[in-house]
């Protein structure tokens, strides 16, 4: 299988879907002439032209709201946010209009819309640019949320998101854009709501999403080499819908759980996962469910400290050993 980057995988997903359906178009800041702030849309303008690859002004409420209106009329817009942190200036459009139009119309109007872009800390850009709002989005009925960790998942999930008739908030990670992974030449889709066991193990289940999956995989290697602990790593891939079965199956096998996320701890995604596990697999647990999230403060700029604010392999190892106690 050819290896491509996470970035190229996203681009290919959009190109293939634009090829297949001329109602699909992409708009956002710097997506066309500039080729994307992170070059995710590179080549799309040349291939599809100005009508379908549209540079917008810096106007998130304006263009995401416009995309909602266009989606109600049957287009299938993809909006790129330069950072998911900028969704906050468009909160009403994204979190009030997008998920509610179908409901308030009693099912008469739909919003087949994808909003995508990076949602991560860890790049020394400070608190305003480092938000991970997947928990807000997942807390909003009417929205779907995906957070791919690998090139393969990024492509397959994005294609599904574009074909979805509901609004999908697609959260990427700038640190992963250059990561390479195997992606087949043949077309494939990954359904939303299907978690993936990224590493098999018997002693402990680590549940993660987004880049925390990569961190957890590194930790699992250390656990095996240095501590003879065989950790299983479950990648959620999408937060809503949520593949509860894959998580529970793993928990029933290992009986120990560590939840790892770059989201903040209080009311974060893993709070829900933890609740779900204790409700459905209480009798299988040999110890309390442990959580490791970002340190509960605004994202610090100072580079060496920011590294410590987000889960890193060594601390995942420590937390895993703790979960095994």
């Amino acid at each position: 299988m050819p290896e491509i980057t996470y970035r190229t995988a996203l681009m290919e997903a959009m190109a293939e879907e634009m090829e297949r359906d001329d109602k699909v178009m992409i708009m956002g800041e710097e997506v066309a002439q500039f080729k994307g702030s992170y070059k995710v849309t590179e080549g799309l303008l040349e291939k599809f032209g100005e009508k379908r690859v549209i540079d917008t002004p810096i106007s998130e409420a304006g263009f995401t709201g416009l995309a909602i209106g266009a989606a109600m009329m049957g287009l299938r817009p993809i909006c790129e946010l330069m950072f998911w942190s900028f969704s906050y200036v468009a909160f009403d459009q994204m979190f009030n209009n997008a998920p509610n139009v179908r409901y308030m119309s009693g099912g008469l109007a739909n919003v087949p819309l994808v909003i995508r872009g990076p949602a991560n800390g860890g790049t020394n850009v400070g608190a305003t640019h480092s938000h991970t709002p997947e928990n807000f989005a997942a807390n909003t009925p009417g929205l779907k949320v995906a957070c791919p960790a690998t090139a393969y998942d990024a492509k397959g999930l994005l294609k599904s998101a574009i074909r979805d008739n509901d609004p999908v908030f697609f959260m990427e990670n700038t640190i992963l854009y250059n990561d390479k992974g195997e992606v087949p030449d043949e077309e494939y889709l990954i359904p939303l709501g299907s978690a993936d066991v990224k590493r098999e193990g018997t002693d402990l289940t680590i549940v993660a999403h987004g880049r925390a999956v990569i961190t957890s995989l590194k930790a699992a290697e250390i656990l095996e080499e240095k501590h003879n602990v065989h950790a299983e790593v479950v990648d959620l891939r999408s937060i809503r819908p949520l593949d509860e079965e894959t998580i529970l199956e793993s928990v029933r096998k290992t009986n120990r759980v560590l939840l790892v996320e770059e989201n903040k701890p209080f009311c974060g995604v893993d709070a829900q996962i933890s609740h779900m596990i204790q409700e459905n697999a209480f009798d299988y647990l040999d110890g309390p469910i442990k959580r490791l999230s970002a340190v509960d403060a605004p994202a610090i700029y100072s580079p060496p400290l920011e590294k410590l604010q987000l889960p890193y392999p060594e601390i995942v190892v420590t937390s895993a050993l703790d979960a095994l106690k």
Partner: peptide
């Protein structure tokens, strides 16, 4: 809240 949606309907 509907004003960007109106632009989007026109856009479509």
């Amino acid at each position: 809240g509907q004003t960007p949606l109106g632009a989007g309907i026109a856009y479509a």
